[in-house]
C-alpha cells in the first residue's frame, strides 16, 4: 500500500475564520494503481494532493506513505519522501524565466547536492542534460530546449511539467487537473503520456480531473470527493456517466465540460 489516509481533517485559519477543506477523509491507494479523482472545485482535491506530496500537514488524522506516518517524519525524511512523489501541477508552476531545459533539470534537484545545483546553474553535468533531453524528446519539446518557459503555449507547458516529473523519476505521480486548459486532442495526448510513463516504471498514478469522459476512459478506479470527504469510490467499469454526474449536480460546469 502506497498511501493510507485515516480520517484526515484539514482546516485553514484565515481572516474570515476557519474553513474546513477536508472533513475526516479516509482513502487507501495500492502500489501501481491508477486512480482518477473527481469532484467540484472546492471539494478538497488540491488540499488532498498537497497532503499526498507532503507539502501540507493535516490538522487531525494520519497520512501514511509506504506504511510510515508522514506527520512523524523529520525534514530530511520529508524531502526523501517528496523525491519519491512527483507532482504535475496545473499551469504556471514552471519557473518562467528559466529555459525549457533548465526547468526539466529542476526535476533532479531532489537527488542533487547544493553544490551540484550551484554548478548546474552554469554548466549542468552532461549525463543530466542527456537525460533531460531524452525526456523532453519524449514529450515533444526537443526543439525548444533553449526557450524560456513562459514563451511556451499552455499545452507545451503542461508537457514540460511532465518532463520535469520524469526527470524526478518518482514512484508516485500526482497530477492536478493536467488537462484543464488544453483542447481535447492535446488532453488525450497528455493523458496517454502519463499512462505510458506510469506503465514504464510501474508507477502509481493519481490524477484529478474535471472531465468525466477522461476519468472513465483512462482510469480503472474513480474516487469522488464532496465536502472534503470521499463520497464515491468505485471501479470505472461499474460506473456510468449519469452516476458520476451526481458530483456535479446543480453545477453548470458539468454541462460545459467538453465531451470528447
Amino acid at each position: 500500500m502506497v498511501y493510507l489516509l485515516d480520517k484526515v481533517w484539514k482546516e485553514y485559519r484565515g481572516r474570515a475564520g476557519v474553513t474546513r477543506a477536508l472533513d475526516g477523509l479516509s482513502l487507501s491507494v495500492e502500489r501501481g494503481e491508477r486512480l482518477a479523482l473527481v469532484g467540484r472545485s472546492g471539494a478538497g482535491k488540491t488540499t488532498l494532493f498537497r497532503l499526498l506530496n507532503a507539502t501540507l500537514r493535516p490538522t487531525r488524522g494520519r497520512v501514511l506513505f509506504d506504511e510510515r506516518d508522514v506527520g512523524q517524519m523529520s525534514s530530511r525524511e520529508l524531502r526523501a519522501m517528496r523525491r519519491r512523489v512527483g507532482t504535475v501541477y496545473q499551469q504556471h508552476y514552471l519557473v518562467p524565466s528559466l529555459s525549457v531545459l533548465d526547468n526539466a533539470l529542476c526535476g533532479g534537484l531532489g537527488r542533487w547536492s547544493l553544490w551540484q545545483t550551484a554548478r548546474s546553474v552554469l554548466r549542468p553535468e552532461r549525463a543530466d542534460v542527456e537525460e533531460a533531453e531524452h525526456f523532453l524528446e519524449l514529450v515533444g519539446l526537443k526543439d525548444k530546449l533553449r526557450e524560456r518557459a513562459d514563451t511556451l503555449s499552455g499545452g507545451q507547458q503542461q508537457r514540460l511539467a511532465v518532463a520535469r516529473v520524469l526527470m524526478q523519476n518518482p514512484e508516485v505521480i500526482l497530477a492536478d487537473e493536467p488537462v484543464a486548459s488544453l483542447d481535447p486532442g492535446l488532453a488525450d495526448s497528455v493523458m496517454n503520456l502519463l499512462h505510458e510513463v506510469a506503465d514504464e516504471g510501474r508507477r502509481t498514478l493519481v490524477v484529478a480531473l474535471h472531465n468525466v469522459e477522461l476519468a472513465l476512459g483512462y482510469f480503472p478506479r474513480v474516487v469522488g470527493l464532496r465536502g472534503g470527504a470521499v463520497a464515491l469510490d468505485a471501479k470505472a467499469s461499474g460506473l456510468t456517466r449519469e452516476a458520476l454526474a451526481e458530483f456535479y449536480a446543480d453545477e453548470k460546469a458539468w454541462q460545459q465540460t467538453p465531451v470528447t
Binding site: 524531502r79 501541477y89 504556471h92 519557473v95 529542476c106 534537484l109 537527488r111
Partner: peptide
C-alpha cells in the same frame, strides 16, 4: 510567483535549492 517554488519544493528540493532555482531566477 509562489507556484514554481511550491513545485520545486514538492519535488524534494532543499530550501537552498528552491531559492537557487525557483526564487532567484524570478527575482534576478
Amino acid at each position: 510567483d509562489p507556484r514554481p517554488v511550491e513545485a520545486l519544493h514538492a519535488a524534494g528540493a532543499t530550501r537552498a535549492q528552491v531559492f537557487l532555482r525557483g526564487v532567484w531566477p524570478q527575482a534576478a
